[in-house]
Amino acid sequence: MCDNSNPVYKDPRHGQSRELIYSYDKDGNFEKTVGFHGETDRVILQQAWDHFHERIQLAKDQVLAGKVSPVVYYMEKNLLDPLSLSMLSGISLWRVKRHFKPFIFNRLREKTLLKYTATFNISLDQLKKVE
C-alpha cells in the first residue's frame, strides 16, 4: 500500500510506510491516527535529502576532476562527516583528512584501505573509483 497522490518525494521508495500521528481536536480529545505523512512533513524531509544529494553530487564531480580522493565521495554517500568517519573506521581524524588528497590516497597501504572498505561495506575495487 502506498500513497502516490503526493508527488513531493523524488525517491519512489520514500513515503511507503504508515505511522502513528497524534492530534488534538476542538472537543478536547487527543486522537491517534495511523496514516501517511502529510505534505508539510514531506517537504521538510525532501529538503534534507536534496541537501544530501547535492553534497554527494558535488563530491562526485570533484573526484572525477581529480581534486579529492574517492574517500570523500563514499563519506558523503554514507552521510558521514570526517569526525564520524574517523570514529567509525578507527583512523585518527587528521589522517582521515589527509586521505582526502588524491596523491596521499593513491599511495596508501592495503591495510588502511581495508579499514575504509569495511566501514563503507564495499570492495577494494569499488573504493578506488567512483561508479
Binding site: 488534538y24 487527543f30 512533513d41 534534507a48
Partner: peptide, 20 residues
C-alpha cells in the same frame, strides 16, 4: 528545516511530543 524535522518527523507523533 532541521527544527521542523526534529519537531515533526523523527518519531514524535507530531509537534515535538506536546500532543503525547
Amino acid at each position: 528545516g532541521q527544527i521542523l524535522r526534529m519537531n515533526e518527523d523523527f518519531g514524535t507523533g507530531g509537534a515535538g511530543f506536546r500532543f503525547i
